[in-house]
Amino acid sequence: MKMHFNRKHLVIPYGLFLVLFVIIPLGFIVYYAFTNGSTGSFSLANFIKFFASPTSLSTLLLSIGVALLTTAVCLLIAYPIAYILARSKFKKKSVLLMLFVLPMWINFVLRINALREFLDLIGLLDQAHLFNTILGMVYDFLPFMILPLYTTLIKLDKSMLEASADLGSHPVSTFAKVTLPLSMPGIVSGITMVFMPTMTNYVISDTLGLGHVTIIGKFIEECFGARSDWHLGSAIALVLLMIIFVSMLVSGGFKEEDNGSRGAGLW
């Protein structure tokens, strides 16, 4: 058989990856989530177990709260930096950007443990578990917010801003009515890159919260570890998936009206 190379063949490596590491595992998770541990038959017991337990629910709410706050703080810190960086006339911009992204190249366990020692030094470590956890999350995920914001802002068409100024718009309203809406795709992608990992990164909450802060990721880990209840663990993972799916729908709804097709390409 003679093989004709076609551009479409380039999709094969990722296609395989997708099937082997995304679709099949997802199938397993769905299977485990909807089956009963002892009999293997279809059941919603895992979801009922999760939603009927006040502790599980408060763990879920806490994780959402921690993730929201982390995302908000990251956005508040990252936006001005990305904005200034993108607008600055400094020639070695990439060097500056590298400095912000540099922490990502150092093993995060190392960084979090260094932060732990620092917090101990200033006497905060055993005093403010939740604060420390959120601080660690912000520290770890900030680059993930800066990068997408920066790439969106640097591509921003300057003529739009000039047009806005020419039409007599105040810089503040130019920002609010032109820059901010146009950078929406960057904001949304930054949020998705920070929000979800924050809900599940229990290494940070364990190291800096000293085990006093339990987030939903830790709970899932316990289900697959000591508790040996893969069914419950899968059900919780699926609940998280639904939460992120719903929040994407919600934010996607905003975008279509505000920016037309600009942001939709991101999904």
Binding site: S53, T59, L62, T214, A226
Partner: peptide, 27 residues
């Protein structure tokens, strides 16, 4: 298995973090 489940729930309750009020306010 039965005891393990009970003790898992105990552990869940011990490890669980009390929900701070700001989380509810934020949500």
């Amino acid at each position: 298995n039965e005891t393990n489940e009970k003790i898992s729930i105990l552990w869940e309750n011990v490890k669980g973090t009390e929900l701070p009020i700001w989380v509810l306010v934020l949500l």
